[in-house]
């Protein structure tokens, strides 16, 4: 089929508009100081998790590298824990654990949440009712008791913690995706695709998903933060994999060692600062995207 000049022009114009929109959104995002700060902060942590272990010359699992709960020294800037392990190394490696947890949980959340949300919103009717009732039930059950119960059943290994956090935190994303799907399926291009015989699956994957995605982006970013925070709380409560130390576990053992009363600040201040830093970077970025999608939030 030969496209007429008009069609080609239209396509060209469409491409330009798209480019311009992306450019505008990027400009908008970077005009938000908090968002820029969040990106820089996140970059710092990514660098720390990627490069830290390369430059780190000790074994952070090695016992009695120094004295028990030893003060920081010239060489070991963050001192030692109750087993004489280097705290600095544990903090560096904790970045990897936290990022891994945040991203994998979010992946599960996005998979479950967007699949159920799109199916629910697109088909409507009884499918919608059933999916939304299930979502409602899961969303009102308080997470921590549910997670505690599940952790006893399936165990507390690193991957199990990720799975548990994933299957308990998808409801918000699902509701959001559903509501966006409801509005997108009314649009002309969906009607057009239907009229030329596109299948439901094709429309959901090719038309709805790509258009829903930008709208839930800030929710996705905040899910990463939520997962990192939930994991640290769980670790503090004693649910976690001892083989992969996270910042939350460092805080827990600091508390168990009575670091607060003895004033051994190196056991809990650095890990806590890292946790707040990483979590707030996602909050800043997430709310930055929120302002792009929701023009009302921008400064008047």
């Amino acid at each position: 089929m030969v496209e007429t000049q008009d069609v080609q022009n239209l396509r060209q114009r469409e491409k330009e508009l798209k480019k311009k929109k992306i450019y505008n959104n990027v400009k908008l995002f970077f005009s938000n100081k908090r968002a820029v700060f969040g990106v820089l902060l996140l970059g710092l942590f990514i660098a720390m998790s990627a490069l830290g272990p390369i430059f780190y010359e000790y074994d952070h699992f090695k016992y009695f590298l120094g004295p028990r709960i030893g003060m920081p020294t010239e060489e070991f800037k963050l001192g030692f824990d109750e087993m004489g392990r280097d705290v600095f190394g544990a903090v560096i490696y904790g970045t990897r654990a936290s990022l891994a947890i945040g991203l994998s949980v979010t992946l599960i959340v996005v998979l479950i949440g967007s699949t159920l949300g799109i199916v629910s919103g697109y088909f409507g009717g009884i499918t919608d009712i059933i999916i939304m009732r299930i979502t409602e039930v899961v969303s009102i059950i308080p997470t921590i008791p549910l997670i505690l119960t599940l952790s006893v059943i399936i165990g507390q290994s690193f991957s199990n913690i990720i799975i548990i956090l994933g299957v308990t935190s998808w409801t918000g994303t699902c509701k959001l995706v559903r509501s966006q799907t409801l509005s997108i399926k009314q649009r002309n291009y969906v009607e057009r695709a239907k009229s030329i015989g596109a299948s439901d699956a094709y429309i959901m994957v090719k038309h709805i998903l790509p258009n829903v995605f930008p709208l839930i982006f800030s929710n996705i970013i905040l899910t990463v933060q939520g997962a990192i925070m939930s994991e640290s709380t769980l670790a503090f409560l004693g649910v976690g994999d001892p083989n992969i130390p996270t910042w939350g576990q460092l805080l827990r053992s600091a508390r168990e060692q009575g670091a607060i009363t003895t004033g051994s600040w190196w056991l809990f201040i650095p890990a806590g600062i890292c946790l707040v830093g990483l979590a707030s970077s996602f909050v800043f970025i997430g709310y930055g995207f929120d302002e792009i999608n929701n023009p009302k939030l921008r400064r008047r």
Binding site: T233, L251, F268, G272, A279, S280, V283
Partner: peptide, 11 residues
Amino acid sequence: SMIIYAIPTFW
């Protein structure tokens, strides 16, 4: 409040 939102309560 965004920073506070990112601070673990127990810490």
